[in-house]
Design a protein around this nucleic acid. Structure first.
Lengths: 188, 188, 188, 188
DNA sequence: TATGAATGAGAATTCATTCAT
DNA sequence: TATGAATGAATTCTCATTCAT
């Protein structure tokens, strides 16, 4: 990826988070990125494509964060717990990016293709759940639903921690308690 | 509320859901509502205020749906289950309204005041949780967090049912299973 | 003149002076006058006509003020002096009306007919000048020009007194000095 | 100053004079200047700013005309006479610009800053008067007032000459006579 | 490839005027 | 005659996108 492409995406993240997608003209993005208005369109043929790129960038960063140190050989619970911790960690470390990614998901602004991009990278999570069910460790419902429940609880955990600006011990306890509630619900 | 006011809000709901807030010009809303462009501004001094009104309308409908038949005198579980069923019922019956309400919550377009309006009507849910914890029926964590977990699981349940267009028995089973997972997680 | 007609003109004067003609919607005038929007158009078929009426009202008040106590039988100088004092008096007593009248004159908003209305009432001033020239008391130039010079000096005198908020003795001296300068210039 | 900026100001002068500020949409100005509607706003962020620019342009042209050939070393009377002639000359040569400048002064549309711009360039006139009073050549009143009287008479002279379309000898005589009346009034 | 002035279709909002009650 | 909601043309300003340099 060209240097300017990165700058433009980074500038978009900054400004989208501050002002929203619709209140952020491409001209301001370009200026904030230190390039000319026209240059933006050399890299992204339209604002929509730029938004797609922002989405994919954030999703990739998130996925990368989730996967770092993933205990491939660990027990099911260890692996699920890893995701739990890493997701919350990302949300609290990069609240702007986290919030933006959530907004983009609901916004109808991201193209179908961009939405599905990198979903392959998420397959491991699906497999994890399928395997858990198969081994009789998790409740026997549609793995897709179980995944959604998992994600929903994660979002609640991040939202709560952010709103209450938890750190240190209280944060650790919150993360653990949240996980236990989830696990008690779905584990057999 | 004046008849035209209602028509305008209804038209907004239709169009916002189809095209998004920013792709829906006030002129189109007015036309869709069967009034002149200027008339919209007789009722709502700005597009922002109209959006607030749409939000409040939806929130009120949702709350009304939740409360209908609420078993004030029932057991804790009965009352929680009631909300569980009624929320999912609303989400499935009015998917457009449900989706729009969720989008509005994340959008930054709704004013502080509008966001907080009718929150008094939600107090009963908070009290329900507080009481449950006090009586040792629910896990002892911040009631606010428990509420968020509850809501998150509901959203997951609605999302899954909508995506898979569940009806009849499968739907009933899904609703029940979802509730059981939630309950197992938080009940002592 | 109907009571409401008066109220509407009075309201217009207030608001025009505060905000200017173009920033004063007819609806605001009506409200300020204590009548309904539509009522305004019962009395004045259009905003332009209302503006004409305002102009004529102010011009008439001004003329009436000038004429009050006019020393018909006095010497030329006495009569000119009378106008001098009365004009400045009006300008200082009713600065809002004075300013508005001046703006209207330059504005292109007043119809030809309204501009010329009551000009008959001003004939006495013209005659005064003509007579003064004929009697060899005033410099022999086109009386129309002499009238303009007279009026121009008056405007300067009012403007200066208003800007410096003169009162009492300083004001009296200012008025007298101004007149002397004028008179020295045009008297033979 | 950019070429298009000039064209836009020139177009504004044309149209403002014909139709008034409020009856001249920015779209018409742009078209008359031969640029797109949006282009106007590249040069002037708002219509108000454009009006300011028009005012400053006219004031500068006027000042430049006054100063051309100013007899710095001449006697007081020579210098005052120079201004007298040059002002009337400008008013008659550029009646549209002259009228517009006067309208703008009274209109409340020009910002404080624009009004005061170039006032430094007018200081020479004030000094001229102060000096005249100090040397006992002019009547001893507030120089500000004397300046206003001077200007008022000039306006009367231009107005009369324009209304009567004077040229050649009659014009010359009119200018001279006007000056003499003024001078007789204020000189000792 | 980079630039940034130019473009013009749209957007929100205003307001003189009308007209049914 | 009084009312004021309804109208919709008109206005200022924005901004994604283009393209000559």
């Amino acid at each position: 990826m060209h240097e300017k492409e990165k700058q433009l995406i980074e500038a978009s993240i900054d400004l989208f988070a501050q002002e929203g997608f619709w209140n952020t003209p491409t001209a301001r993005i370009a200026k904030h990125a230190g390039v000319a208005t026209g240059t933006l369109f050399n890299y992204f043929p339209s604002k929509d494509v730029l938004i797609d790129a922002v989405y994919q960038q954030l999703k990739q960063e998130w996925l990368g964060h989730l996967m770092a140190g993933y205990p491939q050989a660990g027990t099911l619970k260890e692996r699920v717990e890893h995701i739990w911790f890493r997701h919350i960690d990302w949300g609290l470390r990069f609240p702007v990016r986290y919030g933006l990614l959530n907004q983009l998901k609901l916004s109808n602004l991201v193209s179908q293709e961009a939405q599905q991009s990198q979903d392959a990278g998420l397959a491991f999570a699906y497999d994890m759940i399928v395997q858990g069910i198969a081994e009789g460790l998790l409740v026997d419902i549609d793995p897709a639903y179980l995944g959604q429940i998992f994600y929903a609880q994660l979002e609640a955990a991040v939202a709560y921690a952010t709103e209450h600006t938890l750190t240190d011990m209280p944060l650790t306890r919150h993360i653990t308690q949240g996980f236990e509630i989830f696990w008690k619900g779905v584990a057999l």
